[in-house]
Design a protein around this nucleic acid. Sequence first.
DNA 1: TCTGGGGTCCTAGGACCC
DNA 2: TCTGGGGTCCTAGGACCC
Length: 428
Amino acid sequence: MPTTFALLDCNNFYVSCERVFNPKLIGKPVVVLSNNDGCIIARSNEAKELGIKMGEPYFRCQPLLEHHQVHVFSSNYALYGDMSQRVMEVLSRLEPQVEVYSIDEAFLRLPAGDEKTLRLIGKNICRTIRQHTGIPVSIGFGPTKTLAKIANRIAKKNPAQRGGCIISAGDDLPPILKSMPVSEVWGIGGRATKKLAGQGIRTAYDLSRADANWLKKNLSITGVRTMRELQGVSCFPLTEIPPPKHSMACSRSFGTPVSELKDMHEATVTYVARAAEKIRAQQLKAGCLTLYLNTNRFSSSQPQYANNRTITLPYPTADTATLIAQAVATLKDLFRPGYAYQKVGVILTALTPEHIQQGNLFLTPRPNTDNLLLALDRINHRWGQDTLQYGSAGLDKPWHHKQNMKSPSYTTSWHELPVALAAETITR
DNA sequence: TCTGGGGTCCTAGGACCC
DNA sequence: TCTGGGGTCCTAGGACCC
């Protein structure tokens, strides 16, 4: 049965989240920064018009931002994550076949319908999500995911397409693809764009007509799939049930460079605890742990050092104390004094479901800490992250990343709920 | 002074087997 | 002096995504 894909995308998502709880920002230029207030990762349309680039380091464009009185926010993932869930819930109530693709995007699969039907569906989705969450969204339809992505891009740039741009695999397709630079095609990054340019392939249309053998050799099988998708042949299916994760990571850049082992130790413990909490939430255990650390690679005046090590754990575990002990021992091996470190990070891999565990013939049974961890997670969930934490994670955390302009966690913290004031009006 | 974080997929090449 | 061929598995690194 023929189907249509749709891509729903929240407009300037992080900025839109800030605006829901701070309507004064509507119509004003707004940007949101990455962790540690490092780079620009979200811009309102007004900010884009000022020429502020995606991924630009904050310190570099700070004068421009100040000059235009741009509103700047540190990223607030508690808020964005929660708003994302609300958007996806509303969407799932409207449409049965949904793949949550990222924090601000979802693919849908619909029975292939005529343009009028799709447009009605699109309008209804956009209106309902806006009404229930306050978040503006755009939608694009196409016979494949890649074409739905392109349709979404066109819809977003063109307010007349409110309710959705629709691409079909007919005669209209070539002119649309000819107007789309190949670098804007989903799956074509900077490297591929360069390689393709060398072959004279500059637009999505050129790519849809490229030589499959050359593509396979130079862009791997995924390049060939993208080409087929541009032709209207679906190669990337909808995955409604997210596959289990293969890895779980936690890392942050330090607010200021760190040289002391004590601080590195505290940060390592903090990130291990967080990563362990995350895999427990998904009923997983880790078989391996990777620890890595590095100095600031952008600094030409400071001596550079980066290292990493992966260890196999004695048995798969999600027990924070066990993981901390292993990570700290690894840290002591990797740490070299005399460097200004910028970051330490932890990756848990070889993840397996907690109820399917391979036993070990030669190890004594390990202590069962399941109930302790359950209580820990429940308390932190109920009363907020780090209500209970391991002592070695430190209290002051002088190395903590910068977050100087963060908005309140309006929807996830009892202490930070927005307050609505109603003025009494007298009408007689 | 100040440059994010968390994922996935694919491939080449090494190690190893018979 | 001359030293195969075919296969699997694993891993590091590259590329891409948001």
